[in-house]
Design a protein around this nucleic acid. Sequence first.
DNA 1: CTTTCCCTATCTTTCGATAGATAGGTCTTT
DNA 2: AAAGACCTATCTATCGAAAGATAGGGAAAG
Lengths: 177, 177
Amino acid sequence: MDNKEQDILRAAERMVREGGYNAFSFRDIANEVGIRSASVHYHFPTKEDLGAAVAAYYTDKFLGALGEPEELVIAGKDPIKAYVKAFRDALAKDKRMCLCGLLGAEINGLPPKVVGETRVFFERNLDWLTRAYTLQKGEKGAKDKAVQTLALLEGAMIVSNALGNNENFDAAVQIIS
Amino acid sequence: MDNKEQDILRAAERMVREGGYNAFSFRDIANEVGIRSASVHYHFPTKEDLGAAVAAYYTDKFLGALGEPEELVIAGKDPIKAYVKAFRDALAKDKRMCLCGLLGAEINGLPPKVVGETRVFFERNLDWLTRAYTLQKGEKGAKDKAVQTLALLEGAMIVSNALGNNENFDAAVQIIS
DNA sequence: CTTTCCCTATCTTTCGATAGATAGGTCTTT
DNA sequence: AAAGACCTATCTATCGAAAGATAGGGAAAG
């Protein structure tokens, strides 16, 4: 069994999270996966297609692993705490930026399909957080709190990533509640 | 008088802020400035040199325009408010990300000199904010507040930039004080 | 008459992309 | 069940464009 398509997405995710959309090539990915660059084109015709697919793959993986905020509340868990932990794991385990945080920063230089999928990440995450805050404290101000939390987490990742030290992440996100 | 060197830095700043370190080439810059790509190499031998110079140029320009927090306090101004406004202007006027926020996100894929200058931006900004908070509320917790503020501002820029809407920036940064 | 600044011309490498071939599997038709 | 048609997934080989970089020349200024 191969599932080369997933291998390609995984390799691309790693490379984009390292240096952005322009930090991977079809040859790089082909080498890592163990096929030829022409075969990568077979699965993803253009780089734009692959970039958009990676963003969508990352969004699904990230929110899928988290579960829905309603379910977390039913299970007696704090959805906001779980959400912050998901970000911290992405930084600590992978030692890398949030893929869509990076793409969001680069968005003015990205091809249209990648822009679209990157926006989907932010919209779905803001929706998730808004629902979580609504469950906790009611609808009032939930949207603003969602924006604040997402911004603080993405920014904390940048500062920690840039300075190569995770204490800054913890110092920054301790005000989230 | 030309000052081509500054023209080059300005062009490079604009391009990096659009799509990151890999979003500009010597030819692009040469075209914009009105010279040939070989002449850009005369001023900045390698791309790494130019990238590092742009980061340093941006850091100096940003903090220089702001002034020292001690001076702002003496002039009866709130340094934190001034700092937030400086970020908002960078987003609203230029319609672009913070240059070093973008480089910070990409840092794992950047050449050493650029990494160094990007870190200088974060270190000097954290220092500035720490001094500002110390002036306002004393040393206790000033460092953490500095990290929180910088992270929130960089993250708010990413979210606003990604979704192409500045209201998210305002919603995110309203908690800064 | 050297330094500064820009030029032309060119090199090498890498990029994204395409053409055309092939081996092996699957489906369809008789 | 056999034969023919099509599909999947990969390969080799190659393209033109663009990248970063360098050598060497020339004009102007002091």
